[in-house]
Amino acid sequence: MMLSVVVPVLDEEAGIVATLDRLAPLRARGAEVIVVDGGSRDTTATRAAPRADRLIAAPRGRALQMNAGAAAARGDVLLFLHADTRLPDDADRLIATALDRPGRVWGRFDVIISGSHPLLAVIATMMNLRSRLTGIATGDQAIFVRRDAFERLGGFPPIALMEDVAMSRALKRVARPACLRARVITSGRRWETHGVLRTVLLMWRLRLAYWLGAPPARLARAYGREPARRG
């Protein structure tokens, strides 16, 4: 199994070096790391280039960037990793073991949210439980998938938000996910910057609106992933 780690980035100069340096042991064992820049205005690309196998540019948007990275990847298993998320040291072995079972084509890790607020541990526990019960994963949980299954589904839908939920729903029709109890560590900076309870309530509202058919572009503006339109 060859693993390709796809990391979409946008203005991540503060943390991209640490993220990619932690992937060096996986690269030494044969995994490739592809960083996909969505138009960073800082030094993200310069810092990432020597620490990745490939640095490519793509239109801004996490789904578009991850699809571009997948198209450039050589691996038969794709792992989509947020720039502020850290994998377990033996992630490659864990993924290979999980996908070695008959019928398994995709999965995700449990998650820990780093930060000082005591509610972050509760939020992570609830995310992991909800994902295990529903078979829906979030991008924070480092989704991995066999390339052939990913390509059959056409990749991530080119929407501005909830691309991880939409992909999980599509993959779930193919097979239940491998829900690994090994944990990735993701940054709690958004929760702590904008308020933990406020962010949780916002995410619940956005997810409900998505299920009810609200346009993802409008949800992305409410979430802050896209700039507000003028005029």
Rank of each mutant, 00 (worst) to 15 (best):
residue 88 P to F: 04
residue 96 A to M: 10
residue 201 L to K: 14
residue 147 R to V: 13
residue 80 F to D: 03
residue 130 R to L: 10
residue 90 D to C: 02
residue 190 R to H: 13
residue 8 P to I: 04
residue 103 G to S: 13
residue 201 L to C: 08
residue 110 D to C: 07
residue 79 L to K: 08
residue 28 A to C: 06
residue 31 A to K: 07
residue 100 D to N: 15
residue 188 G to E: 04
residue 88 P to E: 06
residue 39 G to D: 11
residue 42 D to L: 08
residue 218 R to Y: 03
residue 184 V to P: 00
residue 185 I to P: 00
residue 93 R to V: 11
residue 221 R to Q: 06
residue 142 A to C: 13
residue 42 D to T: 06
residue 99 L to D: 05
residue 33 V to C: 08
residue 231 G to M: 02
residue 23 L to S: 01
residue 207 R to S: 10
residue 161 L to Y: 15
residue 64 L to H: 09
residue 119 L to V: 12
residue 87 L to P: 00
residue 96 A to Y: 00
residue 171 L to A: 05
residue 218 R to P: 00
residue 204 W to L: 15
residue 120 L to G: 05
residue 141 Q to W: 03
residue 221 R to I: 06
residue 175 A to Q: 09
residue 69 G to I: 12
residue 157 P to V: 02
residue 215 P to K: 05
residue 142 A to K: 05
residue 77 V to G: 01
residue 49 A to V: 12
residue 144 F to T: 01
residue 216 P to L: 06
residue 199 T to I: 08
residue 73 A to C: 10
residue 183 R to Q: 15
residue 18 A to G: 11
residue 200 V to C: 12
residue 85 T to I: 12
residue 145 V to T: 07
residue 203 M to E: 14
residue 109 F to A: 03
residue 85 T to W: 03
residue 64 L to P: 01
residue 98 A to H: 10
residue 55 L to Q: 09
residue 210 Y to M: 08
residue 161 L to R: 11
residue 65 Q to G: 02
residue 191 W to A: 13
residue 165 V to Y: 15
residue 183 R to P: 00
residue 223 Y to T: 03
residue 65 Q to H: 05
residue 93 R to W: 06
residue 127 M to K: 07
residue 223 Y to G: 03
residue 49 A to F: 04
residue 74 R to F: 08
residue 118 P to S: 13
residue 101 R to Q: 15
residue 84 D to H: 13
residue 101 R to D: 04
residue 196 V to C: 13
residue 226 E to R: 12
residue 100 D to I: 08
residue 49 A to D: 07
residue 219 L to V: 06
residue 102 P to K: 11
residue 114 S to M: 03
residue 228 A to F: 05
residue 115 G to R: 05
residue 29 R to C: 04
residue 166 A to H: 00
residue 7 V to L: 10
residue 231 G to E: 10
residue 6 V to A: 02
residue 166 A to T: 00
residue 153 L to V: 03
residue 112 I to M: 03
residue 231 G to I: 06
residue 182 A to H: 08
residue 134 T to C: 04
residue 64 L to Y: 05
residue 60 R to Y: 11
residue 158 P to H: 08
residue 65 Q to M: 15
residue 24 A to D: 05
residue 14 A to L: 11
residue 38 G to K: 07
residue 219 L to Y: 05
residue 204 W to D: 06
residue 64 L to R: 15
residue 164 D to A: 09
residue 110 D to Q: 04
residue 25 P to L: 10
residue 208 L to K: 12
residue 74 R to M: 12
residue 127 M to G: 00
residue 204 W to C: 13
residue 56 I to V: 14
residue 100 D to Y: 07
residue 208 L to R: 15
residue 228 A to G: 04
residue 81 L to V: 06
residue 93 R to I: 09
residue 82 H to D: 15
residue 38 G to Y: 10
residue 46 T to Y: 04
residue 54 R to P: 01
residue 121 A to M: 06
residue 18 A to P: 00
residue 155 G to W: 14
residue 55 L to F: 07
residue 118 P to A: 13
residue 179 C to M: 13
residue 34 I to G: 03
residue 131 S to V: 04
residue 28 A to H: 10
residue 231 G to C: 08
residue 199 T to K: 12
residue 21 D to S: 12
residue 29 R to A: 14
residue 14 A to W: 07
residue 14 A to V: 09
residue 77 V to N: 05
residue 157 P to Y: 01
